[in-house]
Design a protein around this nucleic acid. Structure first.
Length: 893
DNA sequence: TGGCTCACG
DNA sequence: ACGTACGTGAGCCAA
């Protein structure tokens, strides 16, 4: 096989790397304050392109100095003038880039008087002559001039890991030029980024045309006199010197004298012993994880096996089940499934064990039915370490087992410690504690390529490593929790809540399929009629669901005024269409179509698709470890956004029915929970008084803001305005946002806010304080010590910083409200049990709980639920809970 | 896959 | 000057 010589254009790739991850600049900072975005991207390049290539010789060429000190600078004094200086965030990464290159086994090379291009050009010719297959990688298309049959020039497309390979054939196909003509073209056009001119008024197009006729500029100028008179001819003549100079500047040297012989470019491969501490120093956790995980599975030859404890896995079967009985103290337990929906997913296998007894795993799920295993799983005295207790509870339930004694859920703990960068993957989260696991994706693949490998040993070993990680992680994770003062939040709120949620999800919400189908048919007819009307008004058929096509129709063909633009074109959002409705009847019809089509596709068809056929129920999943504020979210399907505001949409709720005859749906909701929380945590006396007096809070706010007397009547517009201001306050107010929402000027909005803060001074004080706190300690907290980190509050970027400031104000409020309802849910669940009620909790929708219960239990249920929710947490203001019930969710109003 | 739109609190 | 209200999930389109 032909030997490979790899030549890398260090400066241009580093530059690309820096900008490929520019949007991450503020996030990628090591503990020592070094920006690492270019390092991360460059490392990806080394990992994905260089390491797999295994070249025989390799070098990364760097520019020495500015370019001024090269022959080009002497030739043309303005060469590369006007280039803005590289930002310090970039240059500070340079020394590390070079070290990283070296540790990956590549030579770094630079030579005074030469640019990186010239080093590459010269090495490429030397390599070609020595019979190497030469591979150049650069971010600069000018290097394509070096391509020959033995030299391929790879230019990065986007980022640094996607490349376009330029061979002479490909260059011909793409530009209709030979590699050497790339230089001729430059001679004519010049180069704005390197700041040298070619011939006046000649650009890409004209240059190509001329080169087609004359091939190169020597030939062109030989025949210049034959050219018929034109402005272009004059320019060519007057700029002749400039053209030849440009050609010289554009030509990459291939015959420079280098101080380094080719033989010394030997590629040495990765030096893991040194790369690990290097990565540690710059906080490359992901890279470290990769190295450690592959060392573990023996994929790497390394001299250093570090602190890895030897791990073996025993394949469990009928004959060695007795070993399970040794597990008396604490075990890690894990059922592996394919996919994320534990209600329906296939179970791939399970593992159980601890370091003392060893780890036992199998792909045969039926073994879990054996008494030896059941005795351990269902014994609450044997403490369990798990990952995602809610998922495990439901998986075991599906197998007819009750998982008891789950005390350490690494997913929950990791989420409470830090909500950011949580992808709900054990391997990623474990990295935070320097525990390294092979990623699931590496074992199973992802997307269409997902498959459980035939190699059973591989799967069972992966499971054993997970179990072992759950044991290793317990101590450091729980002590971190302790240091955050979050032990109570974990043991008294999130962990018990997971059990309540598991019950709710497993129970499911019964669906009247027939009702959904009828609603669907009705909608179908109405949508059809509206569609016809729209096509008639438009004078053509088009895809109504395409904002692009709709935009073209409304704003180009019909000439309606453009109210707002999006990144990609015209905005056709509701607020825009509402402004246009008076100008063309079609707009009103489009709004109607949108509304009905949404109901039909998302709620009728979407819900029908996820009703379980066996029990005619919907089993949503509440994600407990996702939101940044502590709220739950709901997926597959989302039952927290079932329509409510329009009558058409609300009809969907008629399909949500009790699971048994003569039962009812019952709902209880907190009134104004976020404003009550605000009054509590800010300690604002005026707002607290309003709640203590049981006032209509928005009316009371209106009186304050508009300077009305106590008990003076409040007109609806004033109340509406005050309500919007209250909302704005909770969201972390800005005059811009409020003015937008109310359709008033920014100045007016600003006055409202100022008056509001004057009337509720302690709210103002708190807003100032919480922002300062976020800045100083880097995070904000809720009443239950739930934490949200806000690193961007220190950002230089106004937008990012402002966003973090609003978040600093909103998160404690939204998050404390979430704490309260979570506590209430646990207490309600306990109360239902204590009172031996048959009622089931079905849903939580942020400030309300939905139940089903026998008709004759409703009264008791209402008493208990209202009382428990009211008193769940004692604030400085009273809580108010409203409740409703009826035959369907729709009727519980 | 990202962008837009729209459903909820 | 900058140019956004806070927190979510899903369907659809256009690459």
């Amino acid at each position: 096989m032909t030997k490979k010589l790899l030549l890398i254009d260090g400066n241009s790739l580093a530059f690309r790397a820096f900008y490929a991850m520019y949007n991450q600049l503020d996030r990628m900072i090591s503990h020592k304050g070094l920006h690492t975005n270019a390092l991360v991207a460059f490392n990806n390049f080394l990992d994905q392109i260089v390491d797999p290539m295994q070249p025989d010789l390799a070098v990364v060429a760097w520019d020495a100095g500015s370019g001024k000190t090269t022959f080009r600078g002497e030739l043309f004094s303005e060469y590369k003038d006007g280039r803005s200086k590289a930002p310090s965030e970039f240059t500070e990464q340079f020394p590390y880039l070079r070290e990283m290159v070296a540790l990956h086994g590549l030579r770094n090379y630079e030579q005074p008087g030469l640019e990186a291009d010239d080093i590459i050009g010269t090495f490429s010719r030397m390599g070609e002559q020595a019979g190497y297959n030469v591979i150049i990688v650069t971010g600069d298309q000018d290097l394509t001039q070096l391509a020959t049959d033995n030299i391929t020039v790879n230019v990065t497309k986007k980022g640094v890991t996607e490349i376009e390979a330029f061979t002479p054939d490909y260059i011909m196909e793409k530009f209709e030029l030979t590699p050497s003509q790339i230089i001729e073209k430059k001679a004519l056009t010049g180069d704005t980024s390197d700041n040298y001119p070619g011939v006046t008024k000649i650009g890409e197009k004209t240059a190509l045309k001329l080169l087609k006729t004359y091939h190169d500029i020597d030939n062109l100028y030989r025949h210049i006199d034959d050219m018929k008179p034109s402005k272009m001819k004059e320019n060519l003549i007057s700029d002749q010197a400039s053209a030849f100079r440009a050609r010289q500047l554009a030509t990459i040297l291939t015959d420079a004298t280098l101080d380094l012989p080719l033989e010394e470019l030997e590629y040495r491969g990765i030096d893991y012993d040194k790369l690990v501490p290097f990565y540690e120093n710059i906080d490359f956790k992901k890279q470290l994880a990769k190295i450690k995980a592959s060392q573990k599975s023996g994929q790497l030859v390394s001299h250093n096996q570090s602190t890895e404890r030897p791990l073996s896995v025993v394949t469990l079967n009928e004959n060695n089940l007795r070993a399970i009985a040794m597990m008396v103290d604490k075990v890690a337990v894990h059922i592996e499934m394919s996919g994320s929906n534990y209600h329906t997913a296939d179970m791939i296998g399970f593992v159980i064990g601890n370091p003392a007894t060893g780890y036992y795993a199998s792909r045969d799920m039926s073994l879990l039915q054996k008494p030896e295993l059941r005795a351990v799983i269902e014994n609450g005295d044997i403490k369990k370490n798990v990952f995602n207790v809610k998922a495990q509870l439901i998986l075991f339930k599906r197998l007819g087992l009750t998982l008891k004694g789950a005390q350490f859920d690494f997913l929950l703990v990791a989420y409470l410690l830090d909500t950011t960068d949580n992808d709900n993957e054990m391997s990623t989260l474990a990295q935070r504690f320097d525990v390294y696991l092979t990623e699931d994706e590496e074992i199973y693949g992802k997307g269409a390529k997902y498959a459980v490998p035939d190699d059973e040993e591989l799967v069972l070993m992966h499971l054993a490593h997970k179990a072992d990680a759950l044991i290793q992680l317990e101590m450091p994770a729980l002590s971190a929790l302790q240091s955050h003062q979050q032990t109570h939040l974990y043991t008294e709120i999130e962990l018990p809540l997971a059990h309540v949620l598991a019950e709710m999800e497993y129970q499911g919400f019964k669906i009247d399929r027939k009702r959904l189908q009828v609603i669907g048919e009705d909608l179908e007819a109405r949508i059809h009629t509206i569609e016809e009307a729209i096509y008639l008004e438009a004078g053509e058929k088009f895809n109504l669901n395409s904002p692009k096509q709709l935009g073209i129709l409304l704003f180009e063909k019909m000439g309606l005024p453009i109210i707002k633009k999006t990144k990609t074109g015209y905005s056709t959002a509701v607020d825009v269409l509402e402004k246009l409705a008076s100008q063309a009847p079609i707009v009103e019809h489009i709004l109607q179509y949108r509304q009905l089509a949404k109901i039909k596709s998302t709620y009728v068809e979407g819900l029908l698709a996820v009703v379980h056929t066996e029990d005619s129920k919907i089993h949503t999943r509440f994600l407990q470890t996702l939101t940044q504020t502590g709220r739950l979210s709901s997926v597959d399907p989302n039952l927290q956004n079932i329509p409510m505001r329009t009558e058409e949409g609300r009809q969907i709720r008629r399909a949500f029915v009790p699971s048994q005859p003569n039962w009812q749906i019952f709902g209880a909701d907190y009134s104004q929970i976020e404003l009550r929380v605000l009054a509590h945590i800010t300690g604002d006396q005026n707002m607290q008084r309003a709640f203590l007096n049981g006032e209509d809070i928005h009316a009371e706010t209106a009186r304050a803001v508009f300077g009305l007397d106590n008990n003076a009547p409040v007109d609806p517009l004033m109340r509406r305005t005050a309500k919007a201001v209250n909302f704005g306050i909770v969201y972390g107010i800005s005059d811009y946002g409020l003015s937008n929402n109310l359709g008033i000027s920014r100045a007016e909005a600003k006055r409202f806010i100022e008056t509001y803060f004057k009337e509720f001074p302690q709210i103002h004080e708190w807003m100032t304080k919480i922002k300062a706190q976020a800045h100083e300690q880097g995070y904000v907290e809720t009443i239950a010590k739930r934490r949200r980190y806000l690193p961007e509050i220190k950002s230089k970027n106004f937008n990012l910083r402002s966003f973090a400031e609003r978040t600093a104000m909103n998160s404690p409020i939204q998050g404390s409200a979430a704490d309260i309802i979570k506590i209430a849910m646990i207490k309600v669940a306990d109360a239902l049990k204590d009172n031996q009620l048959q009622a089931n909790i079905l849903l939580q929708v942020h400030d309300e709980l939905i139940f089903e219960a026998p008709e004759d239990e409703i009264e008791t249920l209402r008493d208990i639920v209202t009382r428990v929710m009211d008193s769940a947490v004692a604030l400085d203001v009273p809580m108010q809970v409203d409740s409703h019930y009826g035959n369907t969710w729709y009727d519980a109003k």
